[in-house]
Amino acid sequence: MKINVEEVQHIAKLAKLRFTNEEAEKMAKEFDSILGHFQSMEEVPLEDTKTSSKEEIKTVLRKDEAVIFEDKAKLFRNVKQMRDGYIQVPKIIE
């Protein structure tokens, strides 16, 4: 096995996901096959290859200009709770 259940659970913690041990076991097995396949990259000589160079990229940043969003009500379309004109979210600081 390339990856065990404990490692799966550690990655899950980082990814903010939860798995039962049964699910983690299944995922470890699937990862085994996928990571095994990733070994194929070892066969390609890459010593002389750099990751993509910056000068190739032609895009440039635009000016950061404020634009009025006409219909303010739309911005609150997906809000779960409002209070006194503010968006109310769960407490995020302990």
């Binding site: 990733f38 990259m41 890459l46 290859t49 750099k50 990751t51 993509s52």
Partner: peptide, 14 residues
């Protein structure tokens, strides 16, 4: 993984 994959990507592009 990630770094190697990026290199491979560049090689493919070239």
């Amino acid at each position: 993984y990630y770094n190697k994959a990026q290199k491979l990507r560049e090689k493919i592009r070239q």
